[in-house]
């Protein structure tokens, strides 16, 4: 089977998922409970993407000092909460990541 056919099918599936609710908007009235969930989407989805990156090492939860990403991430979280500045948060996170690696 051609790699091209596979790519086109998968491209269409991906697009259909991304287009689903955008296309349906205005054509049906989503239930109230569903509308109430939507404001939580950014925090829920982006935290779900991030937490495993910080806490899991080779599939296991690693809370020790050896898990550099966790502690650098914790400092980034603190910086983000204090100053709410994107560049500063990323900078402090990276700095911590490299400093901790050298310890």
């Amino acid at each position: 089977m051609s790699i091209w056919a596979l790519m086109i099918v998968c491209g269409l599936i991906t697009f259909a998922i991304r287009y689903s609710f955008i296309a349906a908007e205005g054509h049906f009235q989503p239930p109230d409970w569903f509308v109430r969930l939507l404001p939580f989407v950014p925090v829920a989805a982006l935290t779900a993407l991030t937490a495993p990156e910080l806490l899991l090492v080779d599939g296991g939860i690693e809370l020790g000092g050896g898990n550099v990403r966790l502690w650098a991430g914790a400092m980034a979280i603190l910086a983000a909460a204090l100053w709410r500045n994107t560049v500063l948060t990323i900078g402090i996170g990276f700095l911590a990541f490299h400093l901790l690696q050298r310890l």
């Binding site: 950014p42 779900a48 983000a80 994107t86």
Partner: peptide
Amino acid sequence: LPLTFIAIVVPMIDSRALLVTALAAGCVAI
């Protein structure tokens, strides 16, 4: 990537409901 997501998400968390959202999503993801 995780650092930028942190920079975006943390300032958004300004209520107890959003904090609970983040904790639940993070724990279940792990």
